[in-house]
Nucleic acid binder design. Structure first.
Lengths: 193, 193, 193, 193
DNA sequence: GATGAATGAGCTTTCATTCAT
DNA sequence: AATGAATGAAAGCTCATTCAT
């Protein structure tokens, strides 16, 4: 039946909301159940454990992030803009998430790390997307890069740092400004002279 | 009293060991007490709460990191090397920490939060250290940077990403290689043409 | 309907297997359902409760034991051998059961309760079967017994103890040996001098 | 301090009462705590788990049984009476216990099996006590037994059956009568002709 | 006949924290 | 300065059972 999937979906949606507010450990099954208007035991009918609920929530968020990035990047022709768009979309999405996570800045980090440890698959996807962009720029004679693999991993690491700032007191604008500088700096670093 | 400080010190040392192995939530006061050969209630004589113990542990850890970086950086004259040294020392220290954290893969989270969130003060220190390096290079005519503040924050973010990789399947060597590429890229980005 | 009986039968068979492995409380309706390839709620269509399923399983088990003993005993003419056969068949059957119970050492409990408590009816049957054997021997002038009822109950108790040993570290052979000694001792006790 | 032991003792006493009424699984820590006028968590301060509490209860009961048997047996000189006393004391003790266990006849069995599986040590003790009695009788020229080890194990099994009857509807007197018959029968089985 | 979905009622266990001594 | 004893509050999880369909 569709029903089962729908119920799972509904629970995941409710859970996402709660997790984003209180983090993994502080959120109780009770909380989720209440918010999903189900009994606690019903959750266990659909999911094996709290961790499994959490994992589904994350999986869904990652899918959303991937989708957003892919869409945006493909719309750009210019390699420079493709890279900029990659970084910006990524950041916008994370910022949006960060808004939900205001109470739990600290927990968010765990959260986010869990994403990664949960699925390094996503990291790989990011690296290879970056590689695509770099190669695209190189083929157009704009970027001067020999080892595209190495460079895209380096870029990946550099961008990883962008996941950090919400945890502390940077305003949205400050972050945006810093990001632009970082983009310029990185592009300058890989551009042909 | 000296004695009191010493006892606190001893507890912190013991706690650091345990926290590094099990993370903040998984570590119990019981664990710490046992490891410090104190009674559980004794901990409450010296510290107000588990969180306070944790905070002290972090404070000490950060002091160590700061010290290591400062020492190393000041030893270098060449701005390029100063930057390289900054990055490498930082990474070496984090790597060394990471070694203690082998058991707790999925607790990388704690680690992440552990190093960062507690005190932005350290972040500020990093940024200003970077700024020092950038200005030093600019004054020597090697770096071409107008807004040194902005650039050093950008660099700071870029380097933040380096805290991430240990959690997943990168070998020490792979990381080192990626880091070198990133350093080159960033230096190329700020060097005078 | 035949069908209904068949389904019940199928469930009982599946349940017997599971109960024998995990005991009454550790076995869940879920387990039984899975093993019977039925839905959990289907079990409730055929049985009122878990206890009822269990009861049926026992009833069947007892019927099997009775049948085995009766068959074997009737085949013997000599009163001595009739008694020996009674004891041995009983033990063989229990041993066979015990084989299924290997995994659940500390659940021997269940086993014990399992074979006995549910229905004293079987005990009565055993006592009267023993009485038959004793009278048969007495009528042939071999046994010297006045109160056959009392003696057969005493024998019954003595044999009850044989249900105990599998739970602990006796090998099949050791048990067999002890049983022979016990048989001799008991026969000697009731034989005419 | 003595205090700790005393508290444990008090909890065990309270727990014994409850366990005897409801059995292991039906008894909750809540029940025990209430009866011991302690908080539930206090129980966990003194014992690691419900099972551990239970184990202590059993251990104590076994000690009591051993003591009772030893005392009584040593008071008898005549080998016949020694054996009779052994059996009777054992049975009296078990009967006394059985009185506490009225509600949970069925569970008692599990209980009792747990004793054994928990500590076969006690069984060994019984066997060797029996062996002592048999050898004592043989040395006095009253019993005719070659393999005293084998015979005492056989007796042990025969007596094991006496643990069973409370579970069903035998009156105290009936049991007593049956036991006497069994004793006679067994003694007759091992007596010199 | 059969079942998917849902639940209520518990249960054990953990732990930071307190406080009299 | 230090601690043994005690606890409140919660949390995750299990399961027999029900019932509309």
């Amino acid at each position: 039946m569709r029903g089962t999937q729908d119920q799972r979906e509904a629970i995941i949606t409710a859970a996402a909301e709660i997790f984003s507010r209180f983090g993994l450990e502080k959120t109780t099954m009770e909380d989720i159940a209440r918010s999903a208007r189900k009994s606690k035991s019903a959750l266990y009918y659909y999911f094996k454990s709290k961790e499994e609920v959490f994992a589904e929530v994350i999986r869904k968020e990652i899918a959303g992030l991937k989708h957003a990035i892919r869409e945006a990047v493909e719309r750009e022709d210019d390699p420079y803009y493709r890279f900029r768009t990659f970084v910006r979309t990524r950041l916008d999405y994370l910022n949006k998430k960060a808004d939900q996570y205001t109470t739990v800045k600290d927990e968010y980090l765990k959260h986010y790390a869990f994403i990664n440890s949960l699925t390094e698959e996503y990291s790989n996807w990011e690296v290879s997307t970056l590689k695509g962009i770099v190669e695209y720029g190189r083929d157009r004679g704009l970027f001067e890069v020999t080892d595209t693999a190495a460079v895209s991993e380096a870029l990946f690491f550099a961008l990883k740092g962008l996941e950090y700032p919400w945890a502390i007191n940077y305003s949205r604008e400050e972050i945006a400004r810093h990001v632009e500088v970082l983009i310029d700096l990185l592009l300058r670093g890989i551009s042909r002279r």
